[in-house]
Design a binder for these strands. Structure first.
Lengths: 132, 132
DNA sequence: TTTAACATTAACGTTAACGTGAAGTATGTA
DNA sequence: TACATACTTCACGTTAACGTTAATGTTAAA
């Protein structure tokens, strides 16, 4: 049996799908966040893993993480130390970020409660005004 | 009985307490997010409400919300329309942001799961390597 | 009342994360 | 083979969110 034929994407295809520009994707590569395969003719080819990685990056961005932090979270692709050390590093960063995420969840809860409180106060004032 | 003497803060006092710089606080004011009282000599004076508002702003920032979005969330202090309209507007934005927050919670969960998955894969590879 | 410790405004500087071409070349698809 | 895409490199532009500096005013304490 031949190895499962992985679905491949061109840069602009992927960009459209993710709602970003090819420029951004190349920029992420420049910053060492992804490292797609290339065709014989040097064109970038993206697979499932790359797509997933990009989604992670975008999710991170939506949460205000810098590309630098995201790199730490999911692991740089360049500057290879030994593989084991690489992995251990990623693990350490990953743990930190997990903590971080859990802390953020708490904060989101706080924020939600505060917004709800603000809302309720506003509603109260509104009815006060309208029934005066 | 005199009105409860509210505790007042100077800008750098508040900045220290919140772990930011006076510059940032002034900038938030410039962007219409806060509007502290002034002394006779034009120096800024902050009260409890201001402090709370700043905390909200910072929380928002930690989540990657732009100052613009935060302003929408908690209401601009300038461009006064009628009070009722103001309030209704804030309510609308607030509702949106609540939705937003709930969506983000979902995303955080996703992110956590993915990070955990990454972690587990990494751990697996690590033991693979070490026991080879 | 002087002085040290803050504050104020104004303006220019900085960094991250891209956007926007330009220019010339290579690749891939109908 | 035509034509849309993609590539690289380069460089300049842009926006948000402050940092920094300068020149001056305010305030609390001694």
């Amino acid at each position: 049996m031949p190895p499962a034929p992985e679905p491949l994407f061109t840069i602009s295809h992927l960009a459209r799908e993710l709602g970003i520009t090819p420029r951004s994707i190349r920029y992420y590569e420049e910053r060492g966040l992804i490292a797609p395969q290339r065709t014989l003719g040097r064109q970038r080819v993206y697979g499932k893993r790359d797509r997933a990685r990009l989604k992670l990056i975008l999710r991170g961005r939506r949460f205000g993480y810098s590309l630098e932090e995201i790199a730490e979270m999911i692991g740089h692709t360049d500057e290879a130390v030994t593989e084991a050390e690489q992995i251990r590093q990623s693990l350490r960063f990953g743990e930190r970020k997990l903590q971080d995420i859990r802390a953020r969840m708490e904060e989101l809860n706080q924020m939600e409660q505060e917004l709800v409180a603000v809302r309720d106060r506003l509603r109260q004032r509104l009815t006060d005004i309208e029934t005066k």
